[in-house]
Simulated scan of single mutants.
Amino acid sequence: MTHQPTPADHYDSPWKDVLEHAFPEFMDFYFPAAHVEIDWTKGHEFKNTELRQVVRDAELGKRFADTLVQVTLKNGTQKWIYIHIEVQGERDTDFAQRMFTYNYRLYDRYHRPIASLAVLADQDAEWKPDHFGFEVLGCRHTLDFPVAKLLEYTIELDDLQANPNPFAIVTAAHLRTRQTRHDPEARYHAKRTLVWLLYRHGWDRQRILDLFAVLDWMMRLPEGLEQRLWQDIESIEGETKMRYVTSIERLATKRGVELGVQQGMQKGMQQGMQQGERNKAIAILTRHLTKRFGPLSDATRQRLDTATLDQLDTWADRILDADSLDAVFDEN
């Protein structure tokens, strides 16, 4: 059977969302030595607004997934510190210098120790930058930073799928996505296995939904295989008696379209599909705008509610780079 080409992959928002969803587990999986030094009973706080200000000032261009987190250490020498994390998706000759720049600019702004950590999600097995610095006239300035290289987990794929840490599944999904870039059928089987594992680990509903969103974004499938996967998910949820994923709006939209076909209501089907996709786009865009810029005004919500699908797509493309709501909605 011939399938459509596998759609292009996306790595930015899913990584950021799951990192914020399960930050202690992120640290435990990729940076266990640092994880044990943090007093997790004191909580942690994301400082991404502050990080965006530093990025804007540094004029370093488009970022991949990055975040700034305030944590408290166990040893008492520092009441709290900042952790800066960057997930890099491709080889970049300026990456180490960027980590160095982030580190000293954050220290200069907050006068607090800054721990810089990197996750490398690229394809180049030989690329693993972990330091940057210079020495001149007896003055030495160097940053060494811990690195987690996802390609190095390839030999542990079977173990990853048995690991209860959610980032084991995220890592497996990333590696399977890379491996199946040109093989939609293989990606379908890999995605189905990982979705099944979401239920096998016995996580709560919200964690399953959040991780499913990551898998679904990373491991995109052609339409035919996507519909086949949704049928599989229905079967999985029937067996586990956990109706989680199939309760989301996306499946309801697809079912509405299928019902329209069965009833011969071609025009109604098209309108229903467009409205369903539009409602879904509004919901997603509202969530991401709120996360980046805070609570939305009534005027902004009205603007979203009256927008066309093309406008919603345009605004969604701008979210990652825009510094403000005005930049997202800029008509110029």
Rank of each mutant, 00 (worst) to 15 (best):
M1H: 14
Q4A: 14
P7C: 04
W15N: 14
W15Q: 09
H21M: 04
P24L: 10
E25R: 03
F29N: 08
H35A: 05
V36D: 11
K47W: 04
K47V: 07
R52Q: 14
Q53D: 10
V54G: 10
V54A: 12
D57A: 15
T67L: 07
L68Q: 05
N75S: 11
T77E: 15
H84N: 13
G89K: 00
E90A: 05
D94T: 08
A96M: 03
R98E: 06
F100N: 13
D108F: 00
A115D: 08
P129G: 08
F132H: 14
F132Q: 15
F134Q: 07
E135V: 06
H141P: 07
K149T: 10
Y153L: 13
T154F: 01
P166G: 00
H174K: 14
R181N: 06
R192K: 15
T193C: 02
L198A: 04
R200L: 04
D204H: 14
F212L: 13
D216Q: 01
D216N: 11
P222E: 13
W230F: 12
R243P: 13
R250K: 04
T253G: 08
K280G: 11
I282T: 01
L285F: 12
T290A: 10
G294N: 11
R301N: 13
T314A: 11
D317F: 05
R318A: 09
A327C: 07
